[in-house]
Design a protein around this nucleic acid. Sequence first.
DNA 1: TATCATAATGAGAATCGTTATCAGTTAAGT
DNA 2: ACTTAACTGATAACGATTCTCATTATGATA
Lengths: 146, 146
Amino acid sequence: MSTAIDSHSTKDWTGFAEQQISEAGLRHSSPRQKVIDLLAGQDCAVTALEMDARLEGVGRATVYRAIEQLEGLGLLQKVDLGASAYGYEKVDPSGHHHHHIVCDSCGLVRPFEDESMETAIHEVRQSGFRIKGHEVTLHGTCQDCA
Amino acid sequence: MSTAIDSHSTKDWTGFAEQQISEAGLRHSSPRQKVIDLLAGQDCAVTALEMDARLEGVGRATVYRAIEQLEGLGLLQKVDLGASAYGYEKVDPSGHHHHHIVCDSCGLVRPFEDESMETAIHEVRQSGFRIKGHEVTLHGTCQDCA
DNA sequence: TATCATAATGAGAATCGTTATCAGTTAAGT
DNA sequence: ACTTAACTGATAACGATTCTCATTATGATA
């Protein structure tokens, strides 16, 4: 098993994303590619406005459109950062993923993984619902704020 | 054990909330009381704007202020409803709580409980963090949308 | 009961994140 | 090269939340 929160899949994801985009009948474009590249190099959630700020020559509308499309293709996941803004992070095609702990006083977000919690969540059944995914957020106080 | 998602604690919570408010050096006021009463009668998350709409004679700013105070006192919990707006629900002093399944196509939110998932989450340890709470959201498709 | 310090209020302005509009641009199949 | 439709950035519109401020009301104290 790889060490926690690995990024070995950066290139895999980029290629996979490009392929999915093209299979969906979407075209190739440089602005959207920049969004993809930025997300590929990120291990945890990034805000839409952060992306917009970091990407020269990419309009804000385009950033939001790209997010929408990637999310629709299941390539991106929206995560609640608690501060009335969402973060987005790539979805590994292998299914490998992490969750988040956020410090309630400074807002620090740290990714974490836990095998047995994961198992327990997969065993949850809810009548009438086909469960496709899950999101866990732990809240607390980080070392610096304690 | 009580049946799932009970509301037996409505009155407990109201009383507890009033007590905590007063102990925090806050005064009693009728607008804030209306917010408390509305929340007390609710089993699952309500939006700030929903509260504002339902409460006659309570300004929007007051609704947000009350939410902020109650949340600060640990009487209220913010939950991510996925649609770029948060919902708020009372925190039972007994520690009893539920989580949410949301239908990704119609937005339906349904509360659920799962004992063994709960146990697994409580066993999660993260160095440098004092974990105080957690939030789980299951995603999927509801019966009507399937 | 009158006084007083200050918490609490509502209306509205300001801000922030997100979505919609639209006219011009560009990718890619023919 | 031509054509079609996806793509684009700028900007307006929108919904949710926070801030400002002048006024009101609570509740402890005299």
